[in-house]
Design a protein around this nucleic acid. Structure first.
Ligand SMILES: [Mn+2]
Ligand SMILES: [Mn+2]
Ligand SMILES: [Mn+2]
Ligand SMILES: [Mn+2]
Lengths: 227, 227
DNA sequence: AATTATTTTTAGGCCAATCTAAAAATATAT
DNA sequence: ATATATTTTTAGATTGGCCTAAAAATAATT
């Protein structure tokens, strides 16, 4: 990963790359100027400005009025940023005992630290984690993501015991709410009842039962528990 | 420390503060524009520019043509930067197994991460170290440095067993040279002979003997070994 | 197809941080 | 004390990253 992307970018440039990566990882289609502006909380004019510069540096393919797609270089660079972000989040939670709702902001800063050696040693120190504290996959040094079969909690069958493996929403409010519901990664759940009226569900959480609103349930990733 | 210095500075501003702190910690006298320019590897004109801005922010007292001294706020801010820098160096060496000559550059980046909570947790994680991998004192959260009686190796008496506690020079070349000489923090030494011709000395290093040039010896801090 | 709405780009300006060259202040030497 | 050298500041320009307002391109409606 590193050999292909050895160039010093500004923090701003890195953040643009990351934003574009995030916006294109779903459908893999070209990303619009406005979408980037929304993601970066900035004006469309500033985005156009930056797209020209990043295009100049061959980090993305930019066609006027047609949006952008990351180049191979740009893709590798962003993947590495994601890798660093998630590894630092693991560090903060596992080693410094931060809660999962506190780490994102700090990782946003730490991800810009530039030292391949540091990242790899951190990775080793953390025992090569495959997922971050929110269940998101950590790309390996050569940019590969671990795939995992998962479903949204609302879409899983009745009575099947499942394991919470991730969250689709990362806001502090949501994460703290899950804490209050005793729902965390690795937690075993089982849907006991569905209520059509508001799409809420009743689940078994460990040894007690719990009502979960549809708004919460649709942001929880689970996998079928093979035990 | 934190209450008094809660303001977001740019990395550049932080680096200027640190440079001024370093230049004034010896004699505590006003620091000249040129000295700062030299330290920061920039032009005197740029320095004057920045001094005005830092003065505006009440981080230092600036009198035209007379140099600057840090204000209380500026002092606390720089001390906190030093604290972060040195704590991260301990982390890199103790936890990630970096060598002492590899950590400075990375710590130069990490010291700018802004999160009081992170620093304090890191401090706890490292068991509140009092000195960094080069033997430099780590200021406490309220800005106090641990004092230590120490002497330069060249100035210690014959036949007195001493302990290496720090280095006065931090270059990679010097640190790696010490590695080759088997000299590290905590190492016991004893001056066996002084040679007037080139001021070199013969020392006992652990169980063997070693010649040490004056250039090396004058950059090693030791303390009298009370064992 | 023509009009209207939306998206995107351009134009022009601002601010922080840098530079070089010239002017001004201070220090040193004769 | 005067001349010379050094240090420091000012002046003016540049670059990255941002802004608003206006123009241009594209998309959606009628
Ligand atoms: Mn995050
Ligand atoms: Mn995460
Ligand atoms: Mn250092
Ligand atoms: Mn150090």
């Amino acid at each position: 990963m590193y050999n292909a992307c050895r160039m010093k970018l500004s923090i701003t440039e890195e953040n643009y790359l990351k934003a574009i990566f995030k916006l294109s990882e779903r459908d893999n289609k070209a990303v619009s100027t406005n979408a980037i502006a929304r993601q970066m909380q900035t004006s469309a004019a500033s985005v156009t400005d930056m797209l020209k510069r990043l295009s100049e540096k061959k980090l993305l393919k930019y066609t006027k009025y047609k949006g952008v797609t990351l180049s191979e270089k740009g893709g590798k660079l962003s993947t590495n940023l994601v890798r660093k972000h998630r590894l630092w989040e693991v560090f903060l939670v596992d080693k410094l005992n931060f809660r999962w709702d506190e780490v994102h902001e700090i990782a946003e800063q730490l991800e810009h630290i530039d030292s391949p050696d540091l990242v790899n040693r951190l990775d080793a120190f953390l025992n090569h984690p495959k997922f971050d504290p929110h269940g998101d996959p950590i790309p390996s040094a050569d940019g590969k993501f671990t795939l995992r079969s998962q479903q949204i909690l609302t879409e899983v069958d009745h009575k099947l015991p499942v394991l919470v493996v991730g969250v689709r929403e990362h806001s502090v409010a949501f994460l703290r709410h899950l804490d209050e519901l005793d729902i965390h990664l690795g937690q075993q759940l089982e849907i006991l009842e569905r209520y059509d009226y508001d799409d809420s569900i009743r689940v078994r959480v460990g040894d007690h039962q719990q009502m979960i609103s549809s708004k919460v349930a649709r942001n929880i990733f689970v996998k079928i528990n093979p035990s």
